[in-house]
Structures are given as structure tokens and as C-alpha cells.
């Protein structure tokens, strides 16, 4: 078995003339937590469904665990657990019965299924609700039951489609921690899709950014920001108090200021400087805060604060998805 658990090559899905997924190349290594990020309608779910063989790709190749999921979906589904967006269960069966049903569809005997289901329910913290009808479950409970449902077949890979959608913030925290915990216990590979960056940021080793069916960039978060913002990865904000220039002459103050800016520009790695209300915004390629601080103080100006800012996913998101991020 190769190192990569998922390999997508030139994957394309068209509906009529519209490409929902456009020549997608992606590989996901074993043991990773990979986040598929993108606004609604970016083709995340379609890609996931194609990985499971539930949607036929227009062209391209999908290999999951070295199995072609277009040709041999059954084999893929034996080792891949899939948690659909807003997972539902049979309302008139209890949580336990639902799990046993899934287990039996996976060739597990009733006795073993019962034992396994109880074990998993305990692990996702649902022992008390096991004998309640699934129709009475809250959304968070359904999601946790869904996780148990996915894990009952002992998968190598689990794919979660928008797992945190519609759960309250605390529930999301707990749910993501649960995923991480289970991942460590069972040596799983996890692929999850989301349009909420903050949540994904916490648990993903690597993310892929999807917009309009294309993968814009992939990598861990710091390498992503490097890729997307060329070399300007750091922003250092420095508050300057000009009172300490001593001179009453405003002309001289301005001259001193210009000299300071000139000096700052000469530091290697500084790319841009913006001045606004005595706050300097300095864009630079690395962490240059010590050098910047020294120059400001040497110039005789007062340094009221120095704030180092790294480009986070928010900036990435805003830059690429524009208005979409505002919905969150």
C-alpha cells in the first residue's frame, strides 16, 4: 500500500457545461487530518461523494486505499466511514438499534454488533441515550451517534462532511476533541469538509482551499499563508508617540519621521510600510520585530506598543472567498 490513502488525479465533474469539480489533483497521506475548506457550493461534497463512488466523475481517477472507487465502490465503502452532512437516523429505532443495523450491513454478526455498538456509544458519551428513539435526539447527539455509526465498521479512513454545522460552540469543541481522540486511538486518517475556518484550524494538519471546484492551495496553515501572500507573512504594528521627539517644530518632527521610515525601509525583509495615526503597519517576510523596535527607539521616538500579527486563515479566507466569510 502506498503512503497516500487518497489520490485524486485530474478529477472533473460536470453538470451540463458547468464544472462543479475542475481537474482536481490531491493526495492525502495516511494518518493525516485533512480539511477541505471552501464556501458553500465549492464542490466539497461532490468531491467527497465521488471518493465514495456515490457520484460518477466525468473524468479523472480516484484511488482510495489503492482501490478505484469508481469501479469498485463496495471495497472502498468497506474501509471508509462517511458521515453525511446533517446525518439522520431511523427515527423509530433507538440509537443502539440504528448502530446495530449499520453494523449488520457491514457483515458483523448481531452479537458482535451489539457489543461493539455499546462500546462505541460509551466512547462518544451516549450511553445514557442509547435506548432513546433516534427521532428524539438533538443535533449534537445525532452528530455523535453519527461518529459512532461511522466507526463501527473499523474504517481506515473517515470522511466527515460539515461535521460541525449547526452545533453550538461548546458542542463543536467537544466534537472536534472527540474526533482527535478517536483518531489517535484508532490510527485513522480523517478528511473533513467545512466552511468554518476556526474550527478546522484547530485540528487539521493540512487544509485544501476549494473555490469553484478548483483547489486554490493546500498545505499547513503557515505554508498556506506563505503561498497566498507571497512573502508578506508577518505584519508588525508599531505605535509611536511623537512627543518624545522633543522639538516643538512640527517641520522637524516630520523630518525625523521621514528619516525613521527610511531607516525602517532599509531593513532586509521589510516589504511595505503604511502610516496611519501614529501607527506603523510594516509588512515583512519574517519576524523582524527586534530590529524594528531598535530602530524606532534609536530614532528618539517613543514606542508605545509593538504588535506582531501573523496572517491567519481569516485573512486567507477574506482574500479568497470575499463576502462568503461574513456569513459566519
Amino acid at each position: 500500500m502506498s503512503r497516500n490513502i487518497i489520490e485524486l488525479e485530474e478529477l472533473t465533474k460536470k453538470y451540463g457545461s458547468v464544472s462543479v469539480v475542475d481537474r482536481l489533483n490531491l493526495s492525502i497521506a495516511k494518518g493525516e487530518v485533512f480539511g477541505l475548506l471552501g464556501p458553500n457550493g465549492a464542490g466539497k461534497s461532490t468531491t467527497i461523494l465521488m471518493m465514495l463512488g456515490l457520484i460518477e466523475p466525468t473524468s479523472g481517477r480516484i484511488m482510495v486505499c489503492d482501490i478505484d472507487s469508481t469501479r469498485n465502490p463496495i471495497e472502498v465503502k468497506k474501509i471508509v466511514g462517511y458521515l453525511p452532512e446533517d446525518v439522520r437516523f431511523y427515527d423509530d429505532l433507538t440509537g443502539l438499534e440504528n448502530l446495530i443495523y449499520t453494523a449488520r450491513l457491514n457483515h458483523i454478526s448481531v452479537k458482535e454488533a451489539d457489543q461493539k455498538a455499546r462500546e462505541l456509544l460509551e466512547r462518544v458519551g451516549m450511553t445514557e441515550e442509547a435506548d432513546k428513539k433516534a427521532g428524539k435526539y438533538s443535533r449534537g447527539m445525532r452528530q455523535r451517534l453519527g461518529l459512532a455509526d461511522v466507526l463501527i465498521k473499523d474504517p481506515h479512513l473517515i470522511i466527515l462532511d460539515e461535521p460541525t454545522l449547526g452545533i453550538d460552540p461548546r458542542g463543536v469543541m467537544e466534537f472536534l476533541e472527540l474526533i482527535l481522540k478517536l483518531k489517535k486511538e484508532q490510527e485513522l486518517t480523517v478528511v473533513l469538509s467545512s466552511h468554518n475556518l476556526h474550527q478546522v484550524q484547530k485540528i487539521c494538519n493540512r487544509v485544501g482551499l476549494f473555490v469553484n471546484g478548483k483547489l486554490l492551495a493546500e498545505g499547513d496553515i503557515s505554508s498556506l499563508s506563505q503561498k497566498l501572500f507571497s512573502d508578506e507573512t508577518f505584519i508588525i504594528e508599531a505605535g509611536i508617540s511623537l512627543d518624545s521627539f522633543d522639538e516643538a517644530d512640527s517641520l522637524k518632527v516630520a523630518k525625523n519621521m521621514d528619516m525613521l521610515l527610511e531607516k525602517l525601509k532599509n531593513i532586509r525583509g521589510v516589504i511595505s510600510i503604511n502610516v496611519r495615526d501614529n501607527v506603523l503597519r510594516i509588512g515583512c517576510s519574517g519576524d523582524l520585530s527586534p530590529a524594528i523596535a531598535k530602530i524606532i527607539i534609536d530614532s528618539g521616538a517613543g514606542l508605545s506598543f509593538l504588535h506582531k500579527k501573523e496572517y491567519g486563515l481569516d485573512e486567507i479566507y477574506n482574500r479568497y472567498f470575499e463576502g462568503d466569510a461574513n456569513h459566519e
Binding site: 465514495l52 456515490l54 465503502k77 471508509v80 466511514g81 453525511p84 450491513l105
Partner: peptide, 14 residues
């Protein structure tokens, strides 16, 4: 409509 179809179809059955 109940949302159970995709879950069942993700199981290894024809």
C-alpha cells in the same frame, strides 16, 4: 427526505 439514504448507501452494499 429523512436523510438516511446517503448513510445507507455509504455502507458496503450494492
Amino acid at each position: 427526505n429523512r436523510g438516511t439514504l446517503s448513510r445507507i448507501m455509504a455502507q458496503p452494499i450494492h
